[in-house]
């Protein structure tokens, strides 16, 4: 391990952290997908039911499609996060040392958990689509 040598170099740390900022963005992708899916569902169903802009049956099919897409996106993020966490190889469930590698894995860990809760939220949001037909 060469991290010991890097430790005092603040500049190096800063650069690594900048590289990590991409996975900070990835952290938010799953909950953003969940949020957009929720807004899309509520808006579409209310436009169909309250304003009759389009038939609710069609809206339902499209929204079920959007749900599959959202879950695929969240699943992909979750899978990538699982790779980043690398828990199978390291077995590290906690990352107490705060080194660059730890931070990298911790962000993967957090992203994975957030993707999991986003997937559950998205499934719960779309249950009415599957169980309720029409506007009643």
């Amino acid at each position: 391990m060469t991290e010991q040598e890097y430790q005092p170099h603040a500049e190096e740390e800063r650069r690594e952290f900048a590289a990590e900022s991409e996975s900070l963005w990835r952290l938010t992708l799953a909950p953003v997908t969940w949020a957009l899916h929720l807004v899309l569902c509520y808006a579409t169903v209310s436009l169909a039911c309250a304003r009759q802009l389009f038939p609710v049956d069609t809206a339902r099919i499209w929204l079920i499609g959007a749900t599959v897409l959202a879950l695929a996106l969240i699943g992909w993020q979750g899978w990538r996060a699982l790779q980043q966490w690398n828990v199978r190889n390291t077995g590290a469930l906690s990352h107490p040392e705060g080194k660059a590698e730890d931070r990298h894995q911790f962000l993967g860990h957090a992203t994975f958990l957030i993707a999991l809760i986003s997937a559950i939220g998205t499934v719960f949001t779309s249950l009415p689509l599957l169980l309720l037909e029409g506007c009643r």
Binding site: F124, L127, P128, L131, L132, E133
Partner: peptide, 14 residues
């Protein structure tokens, strides 16, 4: 549990 109760509740609505 929450999923089960949600499904049950939604199935009562129609």
């Amino acid at each position: 549990i929450v999923g089960g109760v949600l499904v049950w509740g939604l199935s009562l609505l129609p």
